[in-house]
């Protein structure tokens, strides 16, 4: 676990380098986290994914599977991988301020 400064505030991160406290997250923080993942601009489509993931997490306690994400958010697999190259499940969860997803699919 480590703390580092984002937008002038010290925020805590877990061992996977995901934000530890859900309350520390906001849209400005998300923009910074995305930059760390190499996603330089968050478009409406990115936000659709991020907000869907947050909603699922708040309701179910875990991030959705890729299958659920694509089926219910309307963002197709190809687009999802284009939005979050190098691993959409983990990257999107990280930007959304959620822990690493535990599912396999």
């Amino acid at each position: 676990m480590a703390a580092r400064e984002i937008l002038g505030k010290m925020l805590e991160f877990d061992n996977d380098n995901h934000l530890k406290n859900r309350d520390d997250w906001n849209e400005e923080v998300a923009v910074e986290l995305a930059k760390e993942e190499g996603v330089l601009e968050l478009t409406d489509r990115h936000w659709l994914v991020i907000n869907f993931m947050r909603k699922e997490y708040m309701e179910k306690g875990d991030a959705p599977s890729i299958r659920k994400l694509t089926k219910e958010s309307g963002v197709e697999t190809k687009e999802l991988y284009a939005l979050f190259p190098k691993g959409p499940a983990k990257k999107a969860a990280k930007v959304a301020g959620l822990p690493k997803p535990t599912g396999c699919i």
Partner: peptide, 12 residues
């Protein structure tokens, strides 16, 4: 199939 999908999910 699960391993292939899991690899892509992790950016592999």
């Amino acid at each position: 199939l699960i391993m292939a999908n899991g690899a892509r999910m992790a950016g592999i």
